[in-house]
Write a protein that binds this DNA or RNA. Structure first.
Lengths: 217, 217
DNA sequence: ATCCAATTAAGGGATTTCCCCTAGTCAATT
DNA sequence: AATTGACTAGGGGAAATCCCTTAATTGGAT
């Protein structure tokens, strides 16, 4: 029986190495490459055969979600398992929709990870128990789902708007922002209004939350 | 020359194993134990001799900071190196004060980790370059310093005030908060005013930043 | 050349925040 | 018994936001 060819993508070398070492004593799993971002993962898939891609959610350049989409769209039959630091229930929904076969936290034991890889390779799905629990718990919480929607919304914003939402998050008033940018406070108000319309928010609080969640602050 | 006796504490087995495996081929460093929280680390120190404790900041039961304090107070000459997922510049100040000898991100390469352990064991300090850069950058920015001061300020706040700052951060108006808590919007306004006075802030933005930085949101 | 998005600006009014003040009740501390 | 701190509530007014509207200018794209 041929070993399962595994690609690991994680921007933390220590973690990536740790995962890799988890399989050194396992004859059924072969780690064919360890990369540190989504782009490198795609580059590798262009050249080599991989059965399963184990992707970290948070990665620079191309994150796990974008990478998973790319793989599932253009590199079938490669199967994708996501790894994350946190329970991101809202993400899981999206991941399942695009065809990800597994999602687990980095808190899992290595035995469980091996089990997950074998199940997914055998055509099954595997979501670690604490993740599925989180899914159930958060079914009715819009909080995290907003986070995702907003991330896409970020692309809707203009340079000026992003600049201004940053100042708003810093606590500056329209007048102060106007002075900083040498524009009328009424203009700042316009941008503020447009921002709220685009993001479907209705007060500073929402704007600031958005800024925080999108690293604009 | 005796190898450096290293204790690893990290709640993520995968990461902990990864770190441990980093040293298997290194004759100068011996991993004497891998534990998953601060309490277990202390328990181990009661029984065995350890040169350096490598602690994750985020851990259940007893976190890295509490654990470091305990070690540096009662288990000298054990030296402490902190590991973290993020640049927590504000924490670093406190860590240095209590006597931690090193701080590094989990993004570092294993070579740098080995170097750090050897330097600290030799009596030096080691803070990875990206961490010290973050420290310098933030030296004159009140942002992070506020974070420390505010953490202490947090204790100044009453239960009701913490409750209300949370709702403010969620974007609720005084009227909405009043409805939620069955109190007059004027009372909410009072709490808001008191909050701003206590925290020396002058608008929602500041309150929300405070809420975010202190996990009140 | 035309269109479109981005940026600029403002009128005007409703709503909310900001911030001073006083003041009552209640529970815990001294 | 007196004090203190927390929570409650409101008067009142200045300031800022919220949010609709219209509109001029500009620079890049078709």
């Amino acid at each position: 029986m041929k070993p399962i060819r595994l690609l690991i993508a994680d921007d933390h070398p220590l973690i990536a190495e740790g995962i890799k070492n988890t399989f050194t004593s396992n004859a059924f799993i072969e780690v064919v490459s360890v990369v540190t971002n989504g782009e490198e993962a795609i580059d590798f898939l262009k050249k080599e055969v991989v059965d399963i891609a184990l992707l970290d959610i948070e990665m620079p350049k191309m994150n796990g979600l974008a990478c998973a989409k790319e793989i599932l769209a253009n590199y079938q039959p490669v199967k994708v398992i996501m790894l994350s630091m946190y329970q991101e229930a809202s993400l899981i929904k999206e991941l399942i929709e695009i065809g990800v076969k597994g999602y687990m936290l980095k808190t899992i034991a290595k035995d469980e990870l091996i089990l997950a890889i074998q199940k997914v390779h055998g055509g099954q799905e595997y979501f670690s128990s604490d993740v599925t629990k989180a899914l159930l718990l958060n079914k009715n919480s819009e909080k995290v789902i907003q986070f995702n929607e907003k991330s896409k919304l970020l692309e809707l914003l203009t340079k000026r708007e992003i600049e201004i939402i940053g100042f708003i998050a810093e606590g500056l008033t329209n007048i102060q922002i106007g002075e900083k940018l040498f524009i009328s406070p009424r203009t700042v108000d316009s941008h503020r209004t447009n921002l709220m319309k685009k993001l479907d928010l209705h007060n500073v609080a929402g704007l600031i939350r958005f800024a925080f969640q999108n690293g604009l602050s």
